[in-house]
Design a binder for these strands. Structure first.
Length: 300
DNA sequence: AGCCAGGTCTGCG
DNA sequence: CGCAGACATGGC
């Protein structure tokens, strides 16, 4: 067992966790021999995830693996949480829903999906960009922003910029050089607003979820869906439940018996149903449903 | 060649 | 509230 790596749980699934649409700074890299590896940037660290004797391990590229760093990695990969238990509970709760027939088979293979504890500002910017956009292009834009305004970490890897750094970038530069399109104004104002309210945002991690949700939704380019994403992926509030087109579709089917097909459920109703059925596992349930329905699209 | 994308904002009944 | 349209950009 190498002492310069941190071992991930046996069930860990890098495709589902790293490339599944919760984070945008991981990429698959084919190692010599055709083995799949993954490289990502988190805060000031560049890391690779690779298989050693059948088990996935994380290695830091640009830092020594001190005890402190091990702890930091454990936090990012949420290693203290019992995902096997959480998965089992969630599968049971899903099966209990009216329109769950067939879903069990689709959800069972998602056991290796974990929720990463990501830096919130990067999540915020990423999901503002995600609106009306494609996953590959979101990744591309985040990479450009990092390369242009973030601290260099290695030859080809850059940290995501701080709010203060992004706040100095004019909207026109965001549009013409980072290709963010009409979101240029949102991102510029949002970065300025956050950089200018450091007193609140520096301690936002301790802010109650409802207050935080209000502060987020007040930011330009942040609606209900993006706010929930930031609460979930950036502030690790597992009761958050982002409702996008896929999840709306999934929940409509799951609640089929409660509402005739012709009357469309409101997002309000869907959110309440998520709270009662999933409770504090709503966030993971959302990611499961998102993944399950995206898979249906690719192989119907 | 178009269509469309992890929505949000604006303006109107 | 609920609904319609616009919205930059580029992958598929």
């Amino acid at each position: 067992m190498p002492n310069d790596t941190v071992a991930l749980p046996a069930a860990f699934n890098p495709e589902l966790t790293l490339l599944g649409g919760q984070a945008f700074r991981w990429e698959a890299r084919l190692a010599p021999g055709g083995k799949a590896t993954y490289q990502g940037v988190v805060e000031d660290a560049v890391m690779t995830v690779a298989q050693i004797q059948g088990r996935w391990h994380v290695r830091l590229v640009n830092h020594a693996l001190t005890t402190e760093r091990r702890c930091w990695l454990a936090h990012y990969f949420d290693l203290d949480r019992d995902y096997a238990g959480v998965h089992a509970t969630l599968v049971k709760r899903l099966a209990r829903m009216p329109g769950a027939t067939g879903l069990a088979d689709e959800v069972a293979p998602l056991a290796g999906l974990r929720l990463l504890r990501q830096p919130w500002f990067e999540v915020l910017v990423s999901f503002v960009i995600s609106a009306n956009n494609h996953l590959p292009r979101i990744r591309q834009i985040i990479n450009i922003i990092s390369r242009k305004f973030g601290t260099p970490l290695t030859q080809d890897a850059y940290a995501f910029p701080t709010p203060a750094a992004l706040a100095t970038v004019p909207a026109t530069v965001l549009r013409t050089e980072c290709r963010v399109g009409y979101r240029d104004r949102y991102l510029h104002q949002l970065a300025q607003s956050i950089a200018g309210h450091g007193q609140f945002w520096n301690q936002a991690a301790t802010c109650p979820t409802d207050d935080l949700r209000q502060r987020l939704i007040a930011l330009p380019g942040v609606g209900p869906k993006v706010a929930e994403c930031v609460l979930l992926f950036g502030f690790h509030r597992w009761e958050a439940f982002p409702i996008d087109v896929w999840v709306r579709r999934a929940m409509t089917a799951l609640l089929a018996a409660q509402a005739p097909a012709h009357c469309r459920l409101t997002d309000r109703h869907i959110a309440e149903a998520a709270a009662t059925h999933f409770g504090t596992l709503a966030g993971l349930a959302q990611q499961y449903l998102f993944e399950a329905l995206r898979r249906r699209r690719h192989q119907p």
